[in-house]
């Protein structure tokens, strides 16, 4: 446990240093850069690209979470049951749409920039959360549900005090999947001129500068690992508390 925490801290420090003080790493990346070419990406600061990248992911995932959980709640209420198979099919089949395709398809209607990226991330992020939230809200222990009604909880109380807390671990897993996909897909957003860390990678691809590709990829990868790990910890804690 202590070793794991030390590793987490190391990764975090590395990430922060890479983003705030890229100059420190010039020595490490130099062998990968073309002779005489720039080693660290300097056209835009890595910090602002990182923040923008995270902002896109958080905004899209946050909105996706709200909408997906609300939809899942609707289709698991008695009046929305008729829509449940449809919601399941959409969540299932929608996830087969390649993220790049969703992104590219958003461009003709929304133009270039952060707009289509945000929409694509939102739409694509919606589906895993919707699928998991529906699964979580329909696979609840029947005895606990029966008891919630039997002791006199109103529908709203049963939803907020029993159903959502019990489904939370499964919902969080969906959010985690969604966030990690969004972190990766946001890099592709740079192909449609969104300001994300993908910009660094694409600059590297265009100028044959592996140092750029690696630093861009590394920063996104480290963000993904840290966020993934943090969410796993939260889920584990919830699960442990509830002993479900």
């Amino acid at each position: 446990m202590r070793a794991a925490n030390a590793l987490r801290l190391t990764v975090l420090v590395l990430l922060v240093a890479l983003v705030m003080r890229p100059k420190w790493f010039e020595v490490a990346f130099a062998p990968l850069a073309p002779v005489g070419g720039p080693v660290m990406y300097e056209r835009t600061s890595l910090l602002s690209l990182s923040l923008n990248h995270l902002y896109l992911v958080i905004a899209a995932s946050g909105a996706a979470t709200l909408v997906a959980v609300a939809l899942a709640i609707l289709v698991t209420r008695p009046f929305g049951v008729a829509f449940r198979p449809l919601a399941r099919s959409i969540a299932n089949m929608g996830q087969t749409f390649p993220p790049v395709a969703v992104l590219a398809l958003a461009v003709p209607s929304l133009g270039f920039g952060s707009g289509p990226t945000l929409v694509a991330l939102f739409l694509y992020g919606l589906l895993p959360i919707l699928e998991n939230a529906i699964t979580g809200l329909t696979n609840l222990p029947p005895a606990a549900m029966e008891a919630a009604r039997g002791i006199g909880m109103s529908r709203w109380q049963s939803l907020t005090r029993v159903e959502i807390p019990l489904a939370l671990p499964v919902i969080l897993t969906g959010i985690r999947l969604s966030v990690v996909i969004a972190l990766g897909t946001a890099t592709i957003g740079s192909t449609v001129a969104a300001r994300t860390l993908g910009e660094v990678i694409i600059a590297g691809l265009l100028t044959n500068n592996t140092a750029f590709v690696l630093q861009g990829g590394l920063i996104v990868g480290l963000f993904a690992v840290l966020i993934y790990d943090a969410m796993v910890q939260i889920e584990a804690r919830l699960l442990h508390g509830a002993r479900i």
């Binding site: 990690v180 990766g184 592996t210 990829g217």
Partner: peptide
């Protein structure tokens, strides 16, 4: 293997080049 999955696809493709 889980770590490999978190590397953004764009970077993964780029890193395979060198």
């Amino acid at each position: 293997l889980s770590f490999l999955q978190t590397i953004p696809s764009l970077a993964m493709f780029g890193l395979m080049i060198p």
